[in-house]
Nucleic acid binder design. Structure first.
Lengths: 190, 190
DNA sequence: CCATTTGCCTAAACCCTTTAGGCAAATGCA
DNA sequence: TGCATTTGCCTAAAGGGTTTAGGCAAATGG
């Protein structure tokens, strides 16, 4: 009988595609086995567990996002960079909702350390070089931007802004304008 | 044999407690049956499905959050109100992580319409009465605040800000200061 | 070309979901 | 109080996901 050519990498890629097509909660070892037309148990030579698969998809998504971010930031600064990175998150979530959902998984400390998580905060910090913030405000601003990007995209994805005026795109643009203004005029310590 | 006295309401309450104790993904009809020392099938007289249970927990959490918000906003305006409502979300998520996770469930349009969701946007809008914003900026600001509250709390809950200086509380305070400043100086249309 | 490694298989145990049908406790009405 | 009805929890069973153990055949390599 011919072999299917399974590898951990191919399984995680296919799992990510499955997540985008059917939702991250539909990602199961069984569904993946069906997709490769292979028996379920066969996947356990390549995956430690179902959790392992999900973590793999999360790490893949974080890498892809970081790669896109790095490309988007190249040659940009200030508001330009802010908008570019913000759109990376929003567009990625729109194109890959399952992968994006996976990226929200709570990782174990080890997995988190091995993830592209630090690249993400580095990128946000890079944007802030175009503004005049010093520590600890810079860290506060990194956390604010992370919160807005993640919060907005996740509310948009769960349908919070649909079917109500104004358009989500309009709010997004306006919010990025507002964040830029805020970063240029970060309030002094109270 | 004595009866256990199950009702839909009690089941959903217990499910919410279970979520807070063990995580929302550990909420199953089976686990709930064990908690009441009852056979699994018995719960299906009170719950349509496992999904129904989860939706019920989400709706409960949204109600509780809205109730806390209404209490916190009473008699407050401006920055005071902003801080009070923001802390409602953050504190609730800290005290009830499982319930908070449930509240992020993507609801069906019918469930969403029957939920306390609109109370939440009304509360945020109420805060903005203390600032000088007119439509459509007010809606943009509502969406920004929703994004920051949800985004920050969810990043904090998933461990994003732990084990790194400065303290999360410090960033939270600073971010709320910054949002207040931003709302007082919302940039004019570009 | 044969030995070893590797990959996918069958089999089986365990848990969660959901429906169908039954018996006993609670309720309500005379 | 006594009986009929309703209601609540039960047993049974089917279906699907996870995971481990052990086996055979295909690929690999000396």
């Amino acid at each position: 009988m011919a072999r299917a050519g399974l590898t951990t990498k191919r399984l995680i890629q296919a799992g990510a595609d499955l997540a985008d097509e059917s939702g991250f909660d539909q990602v199961t070892v069984s569904a993946l086995a069906r997709r490769f037309d292979v028996k379920v148990a066969s996947l356990y030579s390549h995956l430690k567990s179902s959790q392992d698969l999900k973590t793999g998809i999360a790490l893949l998504a974080l890498e892809e996002l970081a790669d896109r971010g790095a490309t988007a930031l190249a040659g940009r600064a200030g508001k330009d960079a802010l908008i570019a990175l913000a759109n990376v998150y929003r567009d990625y979530a729109g194109e890959h909702p399952g992968r994006y959902a996976a990226a929200q998984l709570k990782l174990t400390p080890e997995a988190a350390a091995a993830s592209a998580g630090s690249r993400h905060s580095q990128m946000t910090r890079a944007i802030l070089r175009g503004y005049d913030l010093t520590e600890p405000d810079q860290t506060h601003a990194v956390r604010l931007l992370g919160s807005v990007f993640h919060g907005y995209v996740s509310l948009e994805l769960s349908g919070g802004f649909s079917h109500s005026a104004p358009d989500s795109q309009e709010s997004w643009t306006s919010i990025l304008d507002a964040l830029d203004a805020l970063l240029r005029n970060w309030p002094a310590q109270q």
